[in-house]
């Protein structure tokens, strides 16, 4: 187990290096003069020269890459061209917002998806089963940005049930401590604000959680069906155990293994989907951060934003792989 973990981490290093290299080369791959493109047509020669120097474009790429890597190891993610602030200083609030949204989305996806899958398998070929599978089919084909817009139209605008955009009520903003607002409001003992934050999380959480929910429901169902055919489940039934316990205790335990892999994969994919969800719901997360940087051609921010999210994605997958090996004693590495 330990040696597996070490080996798995060892395999990660070339991948992380490669990712960093791709992100690093982004700005150099821009056709023409990147500094000119960033500053626009009217820029003075001096300004272009200064920016070229600042971006290190006047030096050969290999020495600049070494420089970039050394910087990264010291926690230097570069400086935003727009705000002129080090990215590492301004990144956390955005990242926290994305993490909070992703956690809520995966929570919704797991709770609804796993239960829907279990009940579908339990009552196979019932109307409930068909309904869940139909919804799951539509769910995986749903463009999340459209789902988000529809939620806003029906839930917020037509019925005025939940807020459309943002993380908190602007009339009573949350005072950030950790920037995870659910935690902050509890730490401050402001339950009225906590409710507000929850209300703001529901719609984007559902939009972002729908695709993983559908995939988890399908996976749970097929995995449960397989387990429920096995001998020990027949034994459990034969000894007169209540069906509820057969399903939720005996079957679920074994059916969860493939489901956990899917959950891990989906948590990683959420980070990509978060970009779309955030732009719709005005959610001030990394997605919005990257999106705004693209609009203003703030390449250092685009680079670091992508690198941070991709690194997070890789680390989540690593964690899931190790967890997978840890919970399933049948797997030997």
């Amino acid at each position: 187990m330990f040696s597996y973990t070490i080996r798995r981490i060892g395999l990660l290093i070339p991948v992380l290096l490669g990712m960093t290299f791709i992100v690093f080369m982004m700005i150099r791959a821009i056709p023409g003069n990147p500094a000119q493109l960033i500053l626009g047509q009217q820029a003075s020669k001096e300004a272009i020269e200064t920016l070229t120097k600042q971006l290190g474009l006047d030096q050969p790429w290999y020495s600049q890459f070494v420089h970039y890597l050394t910087g990264l190891f010291q926690g230097d993610l570069g400086t935003s061209l727009k705000t002129r602030t080090p990215i590492s200083d301004e990144l956390w609030p955005y990242l926290a917002a994305t993490i909070e949204l992703s956690l809520v989305a995966i929570l919704i996806a797991v709770v609804v998806g796993v239960n829907a899958g279990i009940i579908s398998a339990w009552f196979q070929n019932s109307w409930f089963d068909y309904a869940v599978m139909l919804i799951a089919l539509i769910g995986v084909s749903m463009p999340i940005f459209w789902l988000g817009l529809m939620e806003q139209y029906f839930v917020s605008i037509k019925w005025d049930l939940l807020p459309t955009t943002g993380r908190d009520n602007i009339r009573m903003p949350v005072e950030a401590i950790t920037h995870l607002y659910l935690l902050d409001t509890l730490l401050e003992g402001r339950f009225d604000q906590f409710i507000e934050v929850v209300k703001h999380l529901i719609l984007p959480g559902i939009a972002l959680g729908t695709i993983p929910m559908a995939i988890i429901a399908r996976m749970t169902r097929s995995s449960m069906l397989e387990v429920m055919r096995s001998d020990y489940i027949r034994t459990a039934k034969a000894k007169g155990l209540k069906m509820f316990w057969v399903v939720y205790k005996h079957s679920l335990k074994n059916a969860m293994i493939p489901v956990i892999t899917v959950i891990g994969l989906q948590t990683g994919l959420l980070l990509g989907g978060a970009i779309l969800t955030e732009t719709i719901f005005g959610w001030p997360g990394v997605g919005t951060y990257i999106y705004e940087a693209i609009q203003s051609r703030d390449y250092p921010v685009i680079q670091s934003g992508i690198l941070v999210v991709a690194t997070l994605f890789v680390l989540i997958n690593l964690f899931v792989d190790i967890l997978y090996a840890a919970i399933d004693p049948r797997i030997k590495y």
Partner: peptide
């Protein structure tokens, strides 16, 4: 491996923001 390590839409955004 490296290309698959990016969330796909993010990589697409990176490519388009360059091109």
């Amino acid at each position: 491996d490296i290309l698959l390590a990016f969330p796909s839409i993010l990589l697409a955004i990176a490519v388009v923001s360059v091109l």
